[in-house]
């Protein structure tokens, strides 16, 4: 067992390595950590770089992959890339599910046979309220896409992001759960998480503050370097935040992973890593 695998087994750091495939997106959500939008700087990590780092990660003892953005499926090579990742380790891809036209659906059909889940954002059981934060027609596109994915046997999870989960209306939450159940998504594949007060959420005065002590250390690779968590490589006012940067070096991956373990070793006793992307 490698030293890194031991650190993962001891839960010092998370077993999943995250890839920020890109920062651009067809949507412009009000709480987006990365200020993603159609015309932002793309910060594309690149297919080959992702695959190379993924192979290193597997050899080092990581146990899963995550892909996020931006909207990963805005990239033409994403279906093939996710399939390649899924053939190596369990993989989760975070998506807004608004780009799943018939051609895309055909391209992702091979994912049905792999340990791959697509985690789709759906914030509210009502279109108007949902689309306030996520943009016009988002609700309709999502509730159309999810059954098509489920029909094809592709693993789907629903992520609901709320400004204040503790203040959420129970009746609304129940209606949301009825909705995802009706689309074939069981409760265990539905996560509710808070808006994190980084990125565009800062400008819109939303969400909870989260320092590194509140975040689980999960190695997160971007075109700009390795970060502490998928909540870390955020953008505010067009500038990349560096407060949770681990290193600019991402190759060899062992260097960045080793730095993350060093940071995790220094976490204060009793720190509360209670906020995590699931």
């Amino acid at each position: 067992m490698t030293a890194l695998a031991e650190a993962i087994a001891a839960e010092k750091i998370g077993g999943r390595v995250w890839f920020y495939s890109n920062y651009h997106c067809n949507l412009q959500c009000s709480y987006c950590l990365t200020e993603s939008a159609p015309l932002v700087k793309r910060r594309e990590l690149g297919r080959e770089a992702i695959l190379e780092r993924a192979r290193e990660a597997s050899a080092l003892g990581f146990t899963g992959y995550g892909v996020t953005g931006g909207e990963p499926f805005i990239l033409d090579y994403m279906p093939d890339l996710v399939a390649e990742l899924g053939r190596e380790l369990p993989t989760i891809v975070l998506s807004n599910a608004t780009l799943f036209n018939e051609r895309r659906l055909r391209e992702i059909e091979p994912l049905a046979d792999l340990p791959v889940h697509i985690q789709i954002s759906l914030d509210h059981p009502d279109p108007v309220e949902n689309d306030e934060m996520r943009g016009p027609e988002n609700f309709r596109k999502v509730v159309e896409a999810i059954p098509k994915l489920v029909e094809r046997g592709i693993g789907v999870r629903i992520a609901t992001t709320l400004d204040d989960p503790d203040a959420a209306d129970p009746e609304e939450q129940e209606r949301l759960c009825e909705l995802h159940r009706s689309m074939g998504i069981p409760d265990e594949d539905h996560v509710v998480r808070p808006v994190i007060n980084r990125g565009r959420a800062v400008s819109n005065e939303m969400g909870v503050l989260a320092g590194f002590e509140q975040l689980e250390p999960e190695l997160t690779l971007t075109a700009d370097g390795a970060f502490y968590s998928p909540f870390a490589p955020t953008v505010r006012g067009g500038r990349l935040d560096t407060d949770l940067l681990v290193s600019r070096t991402t190759s060899p991956l062992s260097a960045a992973a080793g730095s993350l373990v060093r940071i995790a070793d220094d976490l204060p006793a009793g720190h509360d890593a209670s906020i995590g992307i699931r």
């Binding site: 502490y228 935040d241 407060d243 940067l245 681990v246 730095s259």
Partner: peptide, 12 residues
């Protein structure tokens, strides 16, 4: 180049 203030200083 930006001079990173304490608020933006990377962990290490």
């Amino acid at each position: 180049v930006s001079l990173l203030g304490r608020e933006q200083a990377p962990l290490l």
